[in-house]
Protein backbone atom coordinates (compact mmCIF):
# COMPACT_ATOMS: atom_id res chain seq x y z
CA UNK A 1 0.00 0.00 0.00
CA UNK A 2 1.19 3.44 -0.82
CA UNK A 3 0.79 5.77 2.08
CA UNK A 4 -1.92 8.32 1.40
CA UNK A 5 0.46 11.05 2.47
CA UNK A 6 3.06 10.33 -0.20
CA UNK A 7 2.78 12.96 -2.91
CA UNK A 8 2.25 11.85 -6.50
CA UNK A 9 4.87 14.31 -7.68
CA UNK A 10 7.39 16.11 -5.51
CA UNK A 11 9.30 19.05 -6.98
CA UNK A 12 12.32 20.15 -4.95
CA UNK A 13 14.50 23.24 -5.48
CA UNK A 14 14.03 23.03 -9.22
CA UNK A 15 16.22 25.39 -11.15
CA UNK A 16 16.37 26.07 -14.87
CA UNK A 17 18.77 28.46 -16.55
CA UNK A 18 18.79 29.45 -20.20
CA UNK A 19 22.25 30.91 -20.93
CA UNK A 20 22.33 32.75 -17.66
CA UNK A 21 18.67 33.68 -17.70
CA UNK A 22 16.95 32.12 -14.70
CA UNK A 23 13.57 30.72 -15.71
CA UNK A 24 13.01 28.60 -12.60
CA UNK A 25 14.53 29.66 -9.33
CA UNK A 26 14.30 27.08 -6.54
CA UNK A 27 10.76 25.88 -7.21
CA UNK A 28 9.44 23.40 -4.64
CA UNK A 29 5.95 22.01 -4.21
CA UNK A 30 4.06 18.73 -4.07
CA UNK A 31 1.20 17.44 -6.15
CA UNK A 32 -0.97 15.28 -3.92
CA UNK A 33 -2.86 12.21 -5.08
CA UNK A 34 -6.35 13.07 -6.18
CA UNK A 35 -5.95 16.81 -6.33
CA UNK A 36 -6.57 19.30 -9.08
CA UNK A 37 -3.82 21.83 -8.70
CA UNK A 38 -4.08 25.22 -10.33
CA UNK A 39 -0.80 26.76 -11.44
CA UNK A 40 -1.07 30.48 -12.04
CA UNK A 41 1.15 33.49 -12.49
CA UNK A 42 1.75 36.33 -14.93
CA UNK A 43 3.24 35.70 -18.37
CA UNK A 44 6.90 34.77 -18.11
CA UNK A 45 6.50 33.50 -14.54
CA UNK A 46 7.93 30.13 -15.56
CA UNK A 47 4.77 27.99 -15.58
CA UNK A 48 5.32 26.49 -19.01
CA UNK A 49 9.04 26.08 -18.37
CA UNK A 50 8.13 24.11 -15.25
CA UNK A 51 5.85 21.81 -17.27
CA UNK A 52 8.56 21.41 -19.91
CA UNK A 53 11.13 20.45 -17.28
CA UNK A 54 8.80 18.05 -15.46
CA UNK A 55 7.74 16.41 -18.74
CA UNK A 56 11.37 15.99 -19.81
CA UNK A 57 11.43 18.40 -22.73
CA UNK A 58 14.04 20.55 -21.00
CA UNK A 59 16.65 19.17 -18.62
CA UNK A 60 16.73 20.72 -15.16
CA UNK A 61 19.79 22.79 -14.26
CA UNK A 62 19.47 21.77 -10.60
CA UNK A 63 16.94 20.27 -8.26
CA UNK A 64 14.89 17.09 -8.37
CA UNK A 65 11.49 15.83 -9.42
CA UNK A 66 10.19 12.59 -7.94
CA UNK A 67 7.18 10.59 -8.99
CA UNK A 68 5.76 8.38 -6.21
CA UNK A 69 9.08 8.57 -4.41
CA UNK A 70 11.42 7.70 -7.30
CA UNK A 71 13.69 10.27 -8.86
CA UNK A 72 12.62 11.07 -12.42
CA UNK A 73 14.60 14.28 -12.96
CA UNK A 74 16.89 12.85 -15.65
CA UNK A 75 14.42 10.59 -17.44
CA UNK A 76 13.73 11.34 -21.10
CA UNK A 77 10.35 12.56 -22.19
CA UNK A 78 9.11 9.22 -23.56
CA UNK A 79 9.89 7.35 -20.35
CA UNK A 80 8.05 9.95 -18.28
CA UNK A 81 5.06 9.52 -20.56
CA UNK A 82 5.20 5.76 -20.05
CA UNK A 83 5.23 6.29 -16.27
CA UNK A 84 1.95 8.12 -16.72
CA UNK A 85 2.82 11.80 -16.98
CA UNK A 86 0.96 13.41 -19.87
CA UNK A 87 0.63 16.99 -21.01
CA UNK A 88 -0.99 19.28 -23.52
CA UNK A 89 0.78 22.12 -25.28
CA UNK A 90 0.03 25.79 -24.85
CA UNK A 91 0.50 26.38 -28.57
CA UNK A 92 -1.66 23.55 -29.92
CA UNK A 93 0.55 20.85 -31.44
CA UNK A 94 -1.64 18.25 -33.08
CA UNK A 95 -0.52 15.81 -35.76
CA UNK A 96 -2.15 17.98 -38.40
CA UNK A 97 -1.97 15.63 -41.38
CA UNK A 98 -3.44 12.72 -39.43
CA UNK A 99 -7.13 12.29 -38.76
CA UNK A 100 -8.77 13.21 -35.47
CA UNK A 101 -9.28 9.53 -34.68
CA UNK A 102 -5.64 8.71 -35.49
CA UNK A 103 -4.45 11.47 -33.17
CA UNK A 104 -6.20 9.68 -30.33
CA UNK A 105 -5.40 6.11 -31.41
CA UNK A 106 -1.69 6.77 -31.74
CA UNK A 107 -1.44 7.29 -27.99
CA UNK A 108 -2.38 3.67 -27.26
CA UNK A 109 0.38 2.64 -24.86
CA UNK A 110 0.29 -1.05 -25.77
CA UNK A 111 1.90 -0.27 -29.11
CA UNK A 112 3.95 2.76 -28.20
CA UNK A 113 6.22 0.69 -26.01
CA UNK A 114 6.74 -2.13 -28.53
CA UNK A 115 6.15 -0.47 -31.90
CA UNK A 116 7.36 -3.40 -34.02
CA UNK A 117 4.97 -5.80 -32.39
CA UNK A 118 2.11 -3.98 -34.08
CA UNK A 119 3.43 -5.13 -37.46
CA UNK A 120 2.68 -8.75 -36.71
CA UNK A 121 0.01 -8.59 -34.02
CA UNK A 122 -3.02 -10.44 -35.29
CA UNK A 123 -6.47 -9.91 -33.91
CA UNK A 124 -5.31 -7.08 -31.70
CA UNK A 125 -7.40 -4.41 -33.33
CA UNK A 126 -7.41 -0.76 -32.41
CA UNK A 127 -9.34 -0.01 -29.28
CA UNK A 128 -11.85 1.92 -31.33
CA UNK A 129 -14.52 1.91 -28.64
CA UNK A 130 -12.26 3.66 -26.15
CA UNK A 131 -11.06 6.18 -28.71
CA UNK A 132 -14.57 6.96 -29.89
CA UNK A 133 -15.81 7.26 -26.34
CA UNK A 134 -13.07 9.78 -25.69
CA UNK A 135 -13.98 11.74 -28.81
CA UNK A 136 -17.60 11.62 -27.73
CA UNK A 137 -16.71 13.17 -24.39
CA UNK A 138 -14.86 16.08 -25.98
CA UNK A 139 -17.61 16.44 -28.58
CA UNK A 140 -15.45 15.62 -31.59
CA UNK A 141 -17.00 12.33 -32.67
CA UNK A 142 -18.51 13.94 -35.74
CA UNK A 143 -15.04 15.03 -36.83
CA UNK A 144 -13.35 11.68 -36.33
CA UNK A 145 -12.19 11.31 -39.94
CA UNK A 146 -11.32 14.97 -40.50
CA UNK A 147 -7.65 15.92 -40.65
CA UNK A 148 -6.61 17.40 -37.32
CA UNK A 149 -5.07 20.36 -39.13
CA UNK A 150 -8.49 21.43 -40.41
CA UNK A 151 -10.13 21.73 -36.98
CA UNK A 152 -11.40 25.03 -35.63
CA UNK A 153 -9.52 26.51 -32.71
CA UNK A 154 -11.77 25.29 -29.92
CA UNK A 155 -11.98 21.81 -31.43
CA UNK A 156 -8.21 21.61 -31.71
CA UNK A 157 -7.90 22.54 -28.03
CA UNK A 158 -10.29 19.74 -27.09
CA UNK A 159 -8.44 17.23 -29.27
CA UNK A 160 -5.20 18.15 -27.51
CA UNK A 161 -6.83 17.12 -24.26
CA UNK A 162 -8.36 13.95 -25.70
CA UNK A 163 -4.99 12.89 -27.12
CA UNK A 164 -3.26 13.46 -23.78
CA UNK A 165 -5.94 11.39 -22.04
CA UNK A 166 -5.80 8.58 -24.60
CA UNK A 167 -2.63 7.16 -23.11
CA UNK A 168 -4.39 6.66 -19.77
CA UNK A 169 -2.11 8.98 -17.77
CA UNK A 170 -1.96 9.25 -13.98
CA UNK A 171 -0.88 12.87 -13.92
CA UNK A 172 -1.97 15.37 -16.55
CA UNK A 173 -0.62 18.85 -17.14
CA UNK A 174 -3.03 21.10 -19.00
CA UNK A 175 -1.10 24.10 -20.28
CA UNK A 176 -3.59 26.92 -20.76
CA UNK A 177 -6.33 24.77 -22.26
CA UNK A 178 -8.82 27.64 -22.21
CA UNK A 179 -6.61 30.19 -23.92
CA UNK A 180 -8.61 32.14 -26.48
CA UNK A 181 -11.93 30.53 -25.52
CA UNK A 182 -15.14 32.44 -24.95
CA UNK A 183 -17.25 32.10 -21.80
CA UNK A 184 -19.44 29.32 -23.16
CA UNK A 185 -16.50 27.28 -24.49
CA UNK A 186 -14.80 27.70 -21.13
CA UNK A 187 -17.81 26.28 -19.31
CA UNK A 188 -17.83 23.32 -21.69
CA UNK A 189 -14.14 22.81 -21.03
CA UNK A 190 -14.71 22.93 -17.28
CA UNK A 191 -17.35 20.23 -17.66
CA UNK A 192 -14.95 18.10 -19.71
CA UNK A 193 -12.19 18.46 -17.12
CA UNK A 194 -14.58 17.53 -14.31
CA UNK A 195 -15.83 14.50 -16.22
CA UNK A 196 -12.44 12.86 -16.68
CA UNK A 197 -11.01 13.92 -13.34
CA UNK A 198 -11.93 10.68 -11.50
CA UNK A 199 -9.90 8.65 -14.03
CA UNK A 200 -6.69 10.47 -13.14
CA UNK A 201 -4.55 10.57 -10.01
CA UNK A 202 -4.00 14.30 -10.34
CA UNK A 203 -4.35 17.21 -12.74
CA UNK A 204 -2.28 20.36 -12.94
CA UNK A 205 -4.13 23.16 -14.66
CA UNK A 206 -2.30 26.22 -15.90
CA UNK A 207 -4.79 28.98 -16.51
CA UNK A 208 -5.14 32.74 -16.50
CA UNK A 209 -8.87 33.00 -16.04
CA UNK A 210 -9.33 33.57 -12.31
CA UNK A 211 -12.97 32.49 -12.23
CA UNK A 212 -12.31 29.22 -14.09
CA UNK A 213 -9.28 28.25 -12.08
CA UNK A 214 -10.90 29.12 -8.74
CA UNK A 215 -13.90 27.04 -9.69
CA UNK A 216 -11.91 23.95 -10.68
CA UNK A 217 -8.87 23.90 -8.40
CA UNK A 218 -8.55 22.37 -4.95
CA UNK A 219 -5.36 24.27 -4.39
CA UNK A 220 -3.34 26.92 -6.17
CA UNK A 221 0.38 27.42 -6.66
CA UNK A 222 1.27 30.96 -7.70
CA UNK A 223 4.49 31.66 -9.55
CA UNK A 224 6.21 34.91 -10.39
CA UNK A 225 9.67 35.41 -11.93
CA UNK A 226 10.51 31.73 -11.68
CA UNK A 227 9.60 31.44 -7.99
CA UNK A 228 6.65 30.09 -6.08
CA UNK A 229 5.22 33.09 -4.25
CA UNK A 230 2.12 31.56 -2.69
CA UNK A 231 0.25 28.29 -2.29
CA UNK A 232 -3.12 27.54 -0.76
CA UNK A 233 -6.83 27.42 -1.34
CA UNK A 234 -8.05 29.70 -4.14
CA UNK A 235 -9.91 32.09 -1.80
CA UNK A 236 -6.88 32.52 0.43
CA UNK A 237 -4.45 32.89 -2.43
CA UNK A 238 -6.40 35.63 -4.15
CA UNK A 239 -6.58 37.49 -0.84
CA UNK A 240 -2.79 37.42 -0.56
CA UNK A 241 -1.41 40.91 -1.27
CA UNK A 242 1.71 39.48 -2.99
CA UNK A 243 -0.49 37.60 -5.44
CA UNK A 244 -2.63 40.65 -6.09
CA UNK A 245 0.50 42.64 -6.73
CA UNK A 246 2.00 40.08 -9.10
CA UNK A 247 -1.26 39.77 -10.97
CA UNK A 248 -2.67 43.27 -11.03
CA UNK A 249 0.51 45.27 -10.99
CA UNK A 250 1.81 47.37 -8.13
CA UNK A 251 -0.72 48.82 -5.71
CA UNK A 252 -3.42 49.51 -8.20
CA UNK A 253 -6.06 50.20 -5.56
CA UNK A 254 -3.85 52.66 -3.74
CA UNK A 255 -5.33 56.17 -3.77
Amino acid sequence: MIAKSEPLLAIRDLNKQFRGLTALDGVSFDIAQGELLGLIGPNGAGKSVLVNVVSGIYGATAGTVSFLGSDITRLPSYQLARLGIARTFQNIRLFGRMTVLENVLVADKRYLTRPFRSLFAKGAHDDLAAAEDLLERVDLIEKRDALAGTLAYGEARRLEIARALAGGPRLLFLDEPAAGMNEREMQELAAVIRSFRPALDAIVLIEHDVALISELSDRLVVMDSGKVIATGKPVDVFADPRVVEAYLGVEECDD
Partner: peptide, 10 residues
Protein backbone atom coordinates in the same frame (compact mmCIF):
# COMPACT_ATOMS: atom_id res chain seq x y z
CA UNK B 1 4.74 15.24 -37.81
CA UNK B 2 6.17 16.41 -34.49
CA UNK B 3 8.86 14.40 -32.75
CA UNK B 4 8.75 16.43 -29.56
CA UNK B 5 5.06 15.74 -29.10
CA UNK B 6 5.56 12.11 -30.13
CA UNK B 7 8.16 11.72 -27.39
CA UNK B 8 5.88 13.37 -24.85
CA UNK B 9 3.31 10.64 -25.60
CA UNK B 10 5.73 7.81 -24.87
Amino acid sequence: EDELVAASMG
